[in-house]
């Protein structure tokens, strides 16, 4: 039995003192390749490429990003990430570790994570946001490629703002997940599920108003200066549309 691939990619974003953001650390590793793209104003932009083929069973990928005080970073990915079954049995892990300092801003907007048949992936996303930090984070899970049964996918998202945990939730779905995951309380037969988390210091004073977007999405103020949009949809496209609409809404009212 072969051991899976262990890869750790790192980004550090720093205020360059001239109104822009420098990237003193931009470490790719194995299948996790990081590319800097053209900046937009004060914001540095990075794209994760090459994650297409993984993670496979037994792999363990980690991506870390530290956004230092005053820096602004936007991270996306070139394509969807597909979790696939591997040679070696056992689950694959994908860990995302993000820190956003006071006065810093991070947009973490990767493409979808697709859980292919037979795969078994455990994703953990931990975000630490400083008191005046700002964050937009999107997570989208798609259960199976078109017409395919999904694999098993567990995803835990925990977010700390100013040393207080404002969100700690785990979604488990696919064969082998605890029963009822696809039932009327869980996904109700939907094949795409996503979350958009927005942290803004001004939410402390003026929290987001809870609201429903259609039947299957809601904007929810959390217990702290943060809001979560949670949505389920029949497919990735319609999920993205819902989350985009929600972000526009949050941008327009706040």
């Amino acid at each position: 039995m072969t051991a899976g691939v262990r890869a750790v990619a790192r980004i550090v974003a720093r205020d360059d003192g001239r109104g822009g953001t420098a990237l003193p650390v931009l470490d790719s590793d194995g299948p996790l390749a990081l590319r800097r793209t053209r900046a937009s104003g004060a914001e540095a932009r990075v794209v994760v490429v090459g994650a297409m083929s993984g993670p496979l069973g037994g792999d363990h990928f980690t991506v870390e990003a530290d956004v230092e005080p005053g820096a602004r970073l936007r991270v996306g990915s070139a394509a969807a990430t597909i979790a696939l079954p591997g040679q070696s049995k056992g689950e694959a892990r994908y860990d995302v570790r993000l820190s956003v300092a006071d006065g810093a801003e991070l947009h973490w907007l990767p493409e979808q994570l697709i859980s292919a048949r037979g795969s078994d992936l455990y994703v953990t996303t931990r975000v630490d946001v400083g008191a005046g930090g700002r964050l937009v984070l999107r997570e989208e899970q798609v259960l199976g490629r078109v017409g395919e049964e999904p694999g098993r996918l567990t995803s835990r998202l925990s977010v700390r703002v100013a040393d207080r945990v404002v969100l700690d939730q785990e979604l488990a779905c696919g064969p082998g997940a605890p029963g009822g995951w696809d039932g009327p309380a869980g996904l109700g037969g939907h094949r795409a599920v996503g979350q958009l988390l927005v942290v803004r210091p001004e939410f402390d004073e003026t929290p987001v108003t809870a609201r429903v977007l259609g039947e299957h999405a809601a904007v929810m103020p959390l217990a702290g200066p943060a809001a979560l949009v949670s949505a389920v949809a029949p497919d990735a496209l319609r999920l993205r549309r819902l989350l985009d609409e929600a972000l526009e809404l949050l941008d327009s009212v706040n």
Binding site: D168, Q169, A172, A210, V212
Partner: peptide
């Protein structure tokens, strides 16, 4: 942190729909 954190999407979205 040791506490389980399982969430059910439609329970939460449905609760907001219901509250409205």
């Amino acid at each position: 942190e040791e506490l389980p954190a399982g969430a059910a999407p439609l329970l939460e979205i449905g609760a907001e729909v219901h509250a409205a």
